[in-house]
Design a protein around this nucleic acid. Structure first.
Length: 405
DNA sequence: AACGCGTGGGT
DNA sequence: TACCCAAGCGT
């Protein structure tokens, strides 16, 4: 996607030229322009919405938003840091999942400076369970950069914001428009869905040229001076009304001008690519116990998944694996050996495109001594709560609290 | 440009 | 059960 705000004001000088549907039927016979009016954008055959229709959409959307917007905590304060935190948490994550994390995060790190001063373990601990942990690490790192390079104040321009780790085109546009009142567009999954349906755009919106076109259209629709509200209105409509399945067209303020609705094509738009195929995996985890303490290992800082987080020794295995030898393989590198084991629990969960069957075993009668300076530690079960752990590992840890070991 | 990164909830 | 995801980003 193009960086928001990288082009000139989109509305200016743009004539209504080509329409996709009955919106502005008066102009629909006119031919497309020889080249795009906005030269900074890649050449596309994008539909250009006539000014009258753009105004109509903007007004209708803002009116609807005023009445139907959800009461969300990050909409209360005008603090750019609060907006930033919420936008990062909301990346690929549902509002309902974010609410509680956001609340606790703002209690733990009420300001950008306090976040910058926090330890990475503390940051990961507050984020654990929310997923996509690089978001937390990037947010932390970016806060330190803002302190060092911007005097502790977030920059206002999308281009500047995008230099911070974790802030891409969408988040830069969101922060700039919502927190700093800049008239810049955003395109997220909701906006993609709403615009693809509104104008019946049926090519893949995740790839050029439609990807770029959507930024153009989003920019052209902005109600000047109210980009923050308008952008949120567009997303809110996508979240509450123009939903992926069973859109509530009868409640939609734009249904009268919506091409997908008119053509009865809402179900097939947007034309997203198929999701990656699921791979099944089995995972063996060991809870080694000695003198009321359990063994946990910290993942390396440069691990692809869950870097710096803690877990019980575990590994993915082929379906035919022998359990005793697997457990031995897990503990031997740490200098430990076990005589006895029993099944503790088993469950499945999903990680990105993997479907994982986890089998946890309890190991007792441990012999050998933990290698010094290995990333492993014996901890009391009550202290597991302090360590950032991936969700599946946390699930094992919680089961431990309830049992007597 | 395509792929990997998490998780819990809805249908 | 088996998908489909949800306010994207980094590489």
């Amino acid at each position: 996607m193009r960086a928001p705000g990288s082009g000139p004001g989109c509305g200016q000088g743009r004539d209504a030229v080509r329409l996709i549907g009955p919106i502005g039927t008066t102009a629909s016979k006119q031919p497309p322009p020889a080249r795009p009016v906005t030269a900074n954008y890649p050449v596309t055959n994008s539909p250009v919405v006539p000014l009258a229709t753009r105004r109509q959409i903007g007004r209708a959307l803002l009116r609807w938003y005023k009445e139907h917007q959800r009461d969300l905590p990050w909409r209360k304060s005008g603090d750019p840091y609060a907006v930033w935190v919420s936008e990062i948490m909301l990346q690929q994550t549902r509002v309902e999942s974010v609410r509680e994390y956001y609340r606790r995060w703002m209690l733990a790190f009420p300001s950008l400076d306090l976040l910058a001063a926090a330890s990475e373990q503390d940051v990961l601990r507050r984020w654990q369970g929310l997923g996509y942990y690089s978001r937390a690490r990037n947010l932390h790192r970016a806060a330190q950069m803002v302190v060092a390079e911007w005097g502790g104040k977030l920059p206002k321009l999308p281009k500047e914001l995008q230099r911070l780790p974790g802030i891409g085109p969408y988040s830069a546009g969101a922060i700039a428009s919502i927190a700093f009142r800049q008239d810049v567009p955003i395109v997220d999954g909701n906006v993609v869905r709403v615009l693809c349906r509104l104008f019946a755009l049926d090519t893949d919106p995740t790839r050029a040229p439609l990807k770029n076109t959507l930024w153009e259209i989003a920019e052209s629709l902005i109600v000047k001076g109210q980009a923050g509200a308008f952008n949120q209105a567009l997303m809110e409509l996508g979240a509450l009304v123009c939903t992926p399945q069973k859109p509530r067209c009868s409640d939609c303020p734009l249904s009268r001008v919506c091409e997908a609705h008119r053509l009865n094509r809402t179900a097939s738009l947007p034309a997203l690519p198929k999701a990656a195929a699921v791979t099944r995996v089995r995972n063996i985890a060991v809870v080694a116990t000695r003198r009321s303490r359990v063994l946990v290992v910290q993942r390396p800082q440069d691990a692809r998944r869950w870097p710096s987080m803690w877990e019980f020794p575990n590994m993915d295995v082929l379906t035919k694996t022998q359990i005793p030898s697997t457990i031995n393989k897990l503990l031997a590198p740490l200098g430990l050996e076990i005589q006895d084991r029993k099944a503790l629990m088993s469950f499945h969960h999903a990680v990105t495109r993997y479907r994982i069957e986890v089998e946890a075993f309890a190991a007792t009668k441990i012999s050998g001594k933990l290698r010094p300076r290995s990333a492993a530690r014996w901890v009391h079960p009550d202290d597991l709560e302090e360590l950032p752990m991936p969700a599946a590992q946390r699930r094992i840890a919680r089961a431990l609290e309830k049992s007597d070991l």
